[in-house]
């Protein structure tokens, strides 16, 4: 009895020690998480209820939901919200479908060829966004861009199109660039996920007479669902947060046709110094991202 009690006591000490070690290992990360995630998040929500601006003589004035009410009357914000949703609703499915298609085509290739393809598709991801943007800007140039040059050369267009300076085209140009910088990671992940699908299941289905489409839809697709879910969530968040491209290429123009919520947050906070208003937008954006992510989780789980 005494022996058993000693053992229990020792195991409790061991558990406590391991727990303590675990928390100590977590501590550095927790400090960053709390300092750079939790506290800014709380401050963001808190400041959104104030009329807050920069200055030594200024004081934050509590206005309750005033910023949130103003948001829904702000035509520029509403346009930015609409543009953001267009970007998300177009780019997320296109990125997922395209990367799945490419991955399905290349994942069985020989090692070196597969690596080459992976490098090609991943290159825009690892290249600095400023460099990528500068190249695209040159290609879209109104006067000597390659798109106008080729378009006129093959007779697709009669005269130069001001791709980034025309409301009809600017947002689609942004979506195109976002697409090229977004597909790299999903392709790498899908190639890996498809390569990990248990071949015995595929072979068994083949014996049972399943065709390629059935094999994909009934065997592979369910098995790569966690990867798909991850890709959907990450691509959604990235699309919602589209900022650098806008700032570097169009500054939200022409006529606010490429404003996104992220860019408008930046503009409101850093150009107009309306911190409370900008944070209110941040909270709204976060709620939309969370809701959309939750829906994706739910749908993926049902699937």
């Amino acid at each position: 009895m005494a022996r058993s009690s000693t053992v229990t006591s020792r195991s409790k000490v061991l558990v406590r020690r391991e727990t303590r070690s675990a928390y100590l290992f977590l501590l550095p990360n927790m400090i960053f998480f709390v300092g750079f995630v939790v506290i800014p998040m709380i401050l963001c929500i808190y400041t959104s209820f104030f009329d807050s601006t920069m200055g030594n003589d200024t004081k934050d004035v509590f206005i309750g939901f005033g910023n949130y009410v103003e948001l829904w009357k702000d035509q520029i914000f509403l346009r930015a919200l609409k543009n953001t949703f267009v970007i998300v609703l177009v780019s997320v499915p296109v990125v997922c479908v395209f990367s799945l298609w490419v991955s399905s085509a290349i994942y069985r290739l020989r090692g070196s060829i597969l690596s080459t393809f992976r490098c090609i598709f991943y290159l825009p991801v690892v290249t600095g966004s400023v460099a990528v943007t500068v190249v695209w800007k040159w290609m879209f140039n109104n006067y000597y861009g390659i798109f106008n040059y080729v378009g006129k050369g093959v007779g697709l267009i009669d005269k130069n199109i001001n791709w980034l300076g025309d409301e009809k085209f600017a947002l689609w140009c942004i979506i195109l660039i976002l697409f090229t910088t977004s597909i790299g990671q999903p392709i790498v992940l899908y190639v890996s996920a498809l390569g990990n699908v248990d071949t015995s299941l595929v072979e068994a289905s083949e014996v049972d007479g399943a065709n390629s489409f059935q094999q994909f839809w009934k065997i592979k697709w369910p098995l790569i669902m966690p990867t798909t879910l991850y890709i959907l969530v990450i691509t959604t968040i990235n699309s919602f947060q589209c900022f650098a491209l806008i700032q570097l290429l169009t500054s939200g123009g022409p006529n606010h046709s490429t404003d996104t919520v992220m860019y408008y947050i930046y503009y409101t906070a850093f150009k107009l110094y309306r911190y409370g208003y900008g944070n209110a937008m941040g909270v709204i954006l976060a709620i939309f991202i969370a809701l959309l992510s939750a829906v994706q989780f739910k749908l993926a789980k049902e699937k």
Partner: peptide
């Protein structure tokens, strides 16, 4: 918990949004 975590993730990203340049 999952919903809460995703809200935290999203909020933290927007709270730090614009940081690339700003």
């Amino acid at each position: 918990l999952a919903l809460g975590l995703s809200i935290i993730m999203a909020l933290s990203l927007t709270a730090c949004g614009g940081g690339d340049n700003a």
